[in-house]
Design a protein around this nucleic acid. Sequence first.
RNA 1: GGUGGCGUAGCCAAGUGGUAAGGCACGAGUCUGCAAAACUCCUAUUCGUCGGUUCGAUUCCGACCGCCACCUCCA
Length: 479
Amino acid sequence: MGLKIYNSLSRQLEDFSPLTEGHVSMYSCGPTVYDYIHIGNARTALVTDIIRRYLTYKGYVVKLVQNLTDIDDKIIDRAQTLGTSPSQLARTNGEAYFEDTQRLGIQLADVHPKATEHIPEMIKLIQTLIDKDAAYVVDGSVYYRVNSFSEYGKLSRRKPEDLLAGARVEVDERKEDPRDFDMWKAAKPGEPYWDSPWGCGRPGWHIECSCMAMKHLGETIDIHAGGEDLLFPHHENEIAQSELATGKPFARYWVHVAFLKINGTRMGKSEKNFIFLRDALDKYPSEVIRHFLISAHYRHPLDYNPESLQTSESALRRLNNCLETLKKYDIEEYNSASQDISQADTALLSAIETMQSQFTDAMDTDFNTAQAIGGIFSLVGQVNKSFGTSSGISHQTYSRAYKVLSETCQVLGIYTMNEQDVAGTAEILNPLLELLLEIRQNARNQKDWDTSDKIRDQLKQLNIEIQDTHEGSTWKFRS
RNA sequence: GGUGGCGUAGCCAAGUGGUAAGGCACGAGUCUGCAAAACUCCUAUUCGUCGGUUCGAUUCCGACCGCCACCUCCA
């Protein structure tokens, strides 16, 4: 079965085949950097990240471009409020954006273009549209003439009369048509500006994405992703600008991520009910937040609340326990060649294969991460079950389980091998803990429960958890 | 007014024209000095309501109720 993607343009699940065999070009609408990003923003960024990881897992060479909108009305307003310059504010928040997303385990895109670094390209594109009579200049601003693009509305399925009927459309008398939108905005006194053939000003919002996507990925890109609120007018306008300019389809698959909600309503900056990603990251491990964000399909709304995060934390602990145990079989060197394959091996081996195909089937069906996680946990259950019995499962089978499980989990980014995290301290810590465990074991042998419990309780205070198993006591960090 | 989406166990959440994945929580048990972890068992004859199509619908169609979003900046 091949990959299928739900395309907002056709409103259907479509077979995915990239323009160039084996290569995928992908553009994701990034943040306007006037503030830190909230978890809702993170959801979209994470979905993009996972789509990219999965495409890579499937063997595609992916080029991902994600923009940073670093000039815009809100940036100017916010900078004024804070008494700083728009460029300084954008720079600070841009850096914060990378900090936050990397803490969430989101890999950097191949290119992170900034609007202010593409002014000449935008001017050129606007000029092309003016030359094609698809744009007009009024008082130093340039507007796109929506009427000149017959397919306008094909993405959002909005008819002109619907838009005009909407009481919320602010009618600007200077526009020929209320639907027309600005590609170049004349600067007001005191605002940052760039020179252009039409006077001093700054680019409109939609033009930057058209421009930067085409510059870095070509005139037709494979996948264009963004939050569902961007469908109209942002993406509709991007299509209008790009396709009229080039005469070619702009994006082949449009992917829109549903909102993250909080208390049943949309988490949004204008609603002032958001939680910054960095604050959430201070409270929960990154894998927990990732697990939560992908526990529902990306086109379905998801509600943020502490209970759900708690659930993810518990579920992830179970997954990690399983992987940590499996890892021992993976690391230890065994003369495994001589081991026979038992019936139990065959059963577990087939469970591993089942899980692997469940995972790819789920992800192939429009990146159904919720279903994919279901498959992962089914295998976790079976592996755990085999630990409990003296099942005679061979080390290479466990090793195989570890490989497949950790690989799939890493596509989702819900399992990171933390060897390097402890590597620096392990040298000291390992012998120290072993000494403590030995002392504790002596106490236990003498039934000195006070001492043994004291060691366990005190270590727990330090987030080190001791477990007594048949093979002796173990320790590990608990988040 | 226009457009789109959603309603599945206590909670979260997949899914299918043929009889409901997975997670969390709860309860009972196994193991343990006690814990922890793990495991076992238990939790929806039923998928918002009412009709229709069908041999059969939670899944398709219609109506209704409820919730949400977009149509203005927002991921």
